[in-house]
Design a protein around this nucleic acid. Structure first.
Lengths: 129, 129
DNA sequence: CGCCTAATCTTGACTGATTCCAGAATAGCG
DNA sequence: CGCTATTCTGGAATCAGTCAAGATTAGGCG
């Protein structure tokens, strides 16, 4: 995957990419922890750098609901959204309801050229409600 | 408005509420600046406290697109969303395309009880594109 | 109208995620 | 196998936001 994106293959990068695959919706700190289980001496900066590089290369997606720190997931390229629990903060994936690109048309785009519509559902997870 | 929400009427609160009305989508720092034009000695903490109180009372709405600091607006109670410019960060309001509560139905709610669907459009504003 | 008390404000320290930087290490080309 | 640009390390710095203790004040009550 890294080579396919023209990224150099380094141990930290492999470990980060793998951690994001294993822990969907994990925040940076959890990813650092997961990476260090395999490579104990990776710097936090290397993880931050790698997450940025992977995000820019579209190998991972960065999500950040209001009030949360940055989280990452490996499911990319499809049109899926998220449900966030207001109580415990867990995130679940949701496929969009209205076909492929719901809400992609704004009623009045104010002259903006829109390239993405992001939908976040808020509520309570089964455990918290 | 403050009395209507059972909030004590203080100078800082009046100034903050007024600033949010005057500067839609302003971040906390801009609001502090606007407030101090009238009341130079208001502490930043008072502004933070007030914004939390006003948000809890639903007199203002807090919005925070990925990668941005918290922003506030006074337009509440309707079902409107936002367009964010990827280049300069400006935010514009959008009424929802598909009637009153578009996208409010997730295809599979994973057992969550959903109470809100938030839509953020991303693109470029006229000036940046 | 003035007192009283809980709510609010001030001041200043602190936290935690993220970024910046300079020097050391290394992936991958030739 | 060596070279060079990219990446990594280690540590300091930034910045939004929070915490906490003591001073101030809004507004109910007599």
């Amino acid at each position: 995957m890294l080579r396919g994106a023209a990224l150099r293959v380094t141990r930290p990068r492999v470990a980060v990419l793998s951690a994001v695959h294993t822990h969907p919706h994990a925040d940076t700190d959890s990813i650092i922890g997961a990476v260090r289980r395999n490579l104990p001496d990776v710097s936090h900066q290397a993880v931050y750098n790698t997450l940025h590089a992977l995000t820019a290369a579209k190998l991972v997606r960065r999500i950040q609901p209001s009030g949360s720190v940055a989280r990452y997931e490996a499911r990319v390229g499809d049109n899926h959204h998220h449900i966030v629990c207001r109580t415990c903060g867990v995130i679940a994936d949701v496929d969009c309801a209205v076909g492929e690109a719901p809400c992609l048309e704004a009623s009045d785009d104010n002259g903006f050229s829109i390239d993405e519509a992001e939908v976040v559902f808020w509520g309570r997870c089964p455990g918290c409600s």
